[in-house]
Simulated scan of single mutants.
Amino acid sequence: MSTSLAILLSALAMSAIVGLRYLAVSGGFALATRLRSRGLYRGLDRQIAREIGWSLASAAIYGIPAGIVAWGWAEHGWTRVYSDVGAYPIWWLPASVLAYLFAHDTWFYWTHRLMHRPRWFRAMHAVHHASRPPTAWAAMSFHPLEALTGALVIPALVFIVPIHVGALFVVLTIMTVMGVTNHMGWEMFPRGLVHGRLGRWLITASHHQRHHDRYACNYGLYFRVWDRLCGTDGGIGGFTGNNR
């Protein structure tokens, strides 16, 4: 098999994996939403169809750089992803997860703020905010250019920050689950966490929903650190009947 064909197949395979992961996770939480709050998505069928369409296009865009990097890692040892747990101190396993999440959160915060400037918002980010209200299907509902800004982060980090393949899987899982749950229209975490000390620093649906309501605040992805440092933290909102 030629190198170019192998890279193409890897990119296509990774795009399919990202798409199926999106359908499985978003579909699971959408089902949970319908069981928990049956009328929450009533009348949003056309919106949800658009969200799924944009999200599957984003999945293809996310899969291309990931597939290329995955091929390079498997064939030539590109990246600093390692499989031997003993290659680094054991404490680096959780530390690397936090390092990746914080780096991703930093990139997301600043690019997200940029995309809320009128010119960039109209050109790209308006696609995401067309979901009113967002649903569990909206997590990857992006304009292709916005999807591209998100698709490059993790593939770039694996060349810079060493991470065990299992820890990388944890990062991708957190990224997917938080992306979906922050948009699904209700809070799945207990009130004690959301309104407690930990909730002052972590982003959940209650925090991100306020961003979709007010636009000019709460730009973070995982943590409230940058929002607090930069004075853009708008606090948390509430959902009818949540936190039961």
Rank of each mutant, 00 (worst) to 15 (best):
M1R: 10
S2H: 11
A11T: 05
A16N: 02
G19Y: 07
L23C: 06
V25E: 09
G28C: 10
F29E: 02
T33L: 07
R36E: 09
G39W: 08
R42S: 15
G43E: 12
L44D: 10
D45C: 03
R46H: 09
A49S: 15
R50T: 01
E51A: 12
G53H: 09
A57S: 08
A57Q: 11
A57D: 06
S58R: 02
V69E: 07
G72T: 04
W73F: 05
H76N: 11
V85R: 11
I90D: 12
W91I: 03
W91A: 02
F102C: 12
H104C: 11
D105M: 00
W107D: 02
W110S: 00
R117G: 06
P118R: 13
P118E: 13
R119K: 15
R122Y: 11
A123L: 12
A123S: 10
H128M: 08
H128K: 03
H128I: 01
H129Q: 10
S131W: 09
A136H: 11
M140K: 02
S141E: 10
H143K: 00
H143Q: 02
L145C: 13
E146C: 06
E146W: 02
T149H: 05
T149A: 11
V153C: 14
V161L: 15
V165N: 06
G166F: 08
A167H: 06
F169H: 07
V171C: 12
T173Y: 05
V177E: 12
V180G: 08
H183M: 13
M184F: 07
G185A: 06
G185R: 00
F189S: 10
P190C: 11
R191M: 12
G192R: 15
L193W: 15
V194H: 01
H195G: 04
H195M: 04
G196V: 11
L198H: 03
G199D: 06
L202P: 00
T204W: 06
H207C: 06
H207L: 06
H208T: 01
Q209A: 14
Q209S: 11
Q209G: 09
R210G: 01
H211E: 13
H212W: 10
R214H: 14
Y219I: 05
Y222Q: 01
F223Q: 04
R224P: 07
D227V: 06
R228Q: 15
C230Y: 07
T232D: 10
G237L: 04
G241I: 02
R244K: 09
